[in-house]
Design a protein around this nucleic acid. Structure first.
Lengths: 111, 111
DNA sequence: CTTTCATGTAAGAAAAATATAACGCAACTG
DNA sequence: CAGTTGCGTTATATTTTTCTTACATGAAAG
């Protein structure tokens, strides 16, 4: 994973209205679980979960099991604080290539 | 165009390997014209032009007519310096909505 | 003039992202 | 134990993005 690939992955993760909203919502109101967020966003739960997965894959949010206000076990997501300053200079320093590997369907390189 | 829509548009413009490379290339080596960039990137000219258009639509690059080293008229593109600090807080302040309007196919709201 | 190299645009194929619907499972509650 | 509400997954449809191919124009140089 090059520096450019990492920037690209994070940009792709954030470049979506639902995911941008999720980041704002989790920042404003703290950790929340999947169904809760899906209801607030007004979209289906599988879809919202897919968006959460993309954010989690790039380490922008993290999850842990907790207990919802109704007693059920629930999967809570929260923001992983990030600071991604975006300038031409920083992008140039990352030396991106026009054919990036960031879109690969491989397994998690961390694992 | 809300603040959130603007952020989203710029993120979408940057969230692509070719376009990230273009930004880096223009920053490093200054203004260049379309065919030149297409050759360097190793992709077709229409495709590269499409990427340039997306960057130009979000005001990340600008273009002007000039003269290539071989004497032909050419369309030179250059970086419009930008600084897009990306943090959960700034995203929250932009108050994004899960159903954004930033993807509309409308005409230029500036015009 | 013909060749070369720049421009633009339009049509359509291919790939990726987005979104819904439909399963089944576990746990808590009345 | 039936009903509700979490969870996850798969299959599929739709939309958007990406990319190639093809065509047509204008200006400079041989």
């Amino acid at each position: 994973m090059t520096a450019a690939d990492q920037i690209l992955s994070q940009l792709q993760a954030l470049a979506n209205p639902v995911r941008l909203w999720i980041v704002a919502e989790l920042h404003r109101n703290g950790a929340q679980y999947v169904s809760e967020l899906a209801r607030k966003a007004g979209i289906s739960r599988p879809l919202l979960k897919m968006h959460l997965r993309k954010l989690e894959d790039t380490k922008l949010v993290s999850s842990e099991i907790g207990t919802a206000e109704n007693g059920k076990a629930a999967n809570f997501f929260q923001i992983v604080p990030f600071n991604l300053p975006l300038t031409p200079e920083l992008i140039a320093e990352a030396r991106p290539s026009p054919t990036s590997l960031a879109n690969r369907k491989d397994g998690d390189p961390d694992a």
